[in-house]
Simulated scan of single mutants.
Amino acid sequence: MQAIGNSTVVSGILIPLNEETKSEVTIKGNLFQAVGSSMALPDLLNANKISMNTLYEIYGALLQVIGNALQGLSGIMELQGKQGENIDFTGSWIQTVGAFIQAWVQSNNP
């Protein structure tokens, strides 16, 4: 699901579309990414023993959900003529931090 969202965002950038359609595709892609990140949470939360690595994975997934949701929200706001750049910027960084945390945990797991 996360990969579908990522691909959707990239296609919105690469395919020649009008600005409103590009925004709509990007919004949907960001929301797909948020759903994809949230799909990992039930497995992480159902672990018999929650280790520090599991906690980091939970935090990373939550940050990605929050970041991608903020990016989607900012796109919706911009389509409505409101300022959403700061929310998009913040969401991008939150999502990036979450991705780095999860990548770090994966690289430290044997």
Score class of each variant (00 low, 15 high):
Y56I: 06
I101P: 05
I66E: 09
N6Q: 12
L63M: 11
K28V: 15
A69F: 11
N46Y: 05
A61M: 12
W93L: 13
Q102N: 14
D88C: 08
G60P: 03
W104I: 12
N108W: 08
P42A: 01
L41E: 05
I15H: 00
V35S: 05
T54V: 12
Q71V: 05
E85K: 14
Q80K: 15
Q80V: 02
I15Q: 02
V65W: 09
W104T: 14
M52Q: 13
V25R: 01
F89R: 09
D88E: 11
I13W: 07
A34M: 08
L73I: 15
M52T: 15
G29H: 02
Q64I: 10
L55S: 13
N53F: 10
S7C: 13
D88R: 11
Q102E: 03
I27H: 06
G67L: 09
E20K: 15
Q95S: 12
T21G: 05
W104D: 13
E78A: 13
I13E: 10
D88I: 07
W104V: 11
T90R: 03
F32L: 14
P110C: 02
S74K: 04
G29V: 07
P16S: 13
I87A: 11
N48Q: 12
E57R: 06
V35D: 01
K82P: 07
L44R: 00
A40I: 11
T21F: 05
G81L: 06
L17C: 06
S7D: 12
T8K: 01
L14N: 11
E19T: 11
V35R: 06
G84N: 05
S51M: 01
F100R: 00
V65G: 09
I27C: 10
A69S: 15
Q102F: 08
L63D: 01
N6K: 09
L31I: 13
M1Y: 07
A34Q: 00
L73R: 00
W93S: 09
G12S: 03
I101F: 03
A34D: 05
W93D: 01
P110V: 09
E57V: 00
A99P: 02
K22Q: 14
A40S: 15
G5Y: 02
N48R: 10
Q83F: 09
L14T: 06
E57K: 12
V35G: 05
I13F: 10
G84D: 03
G29M: 01
A40W: 10
K22M: 01
F100L: 13
T8P: 07
T26Q: 07
A40F: 13
E19R: 10
Q2S: 14
M39L: 15
M52K: 15
V25Q: 02
N46P: 02
I15F: 09
I94D: 06
I101M: 11
A40L: 15
L62H: 06
L45M: 13
N53W: 03
F89G: 04
Y59C: 03
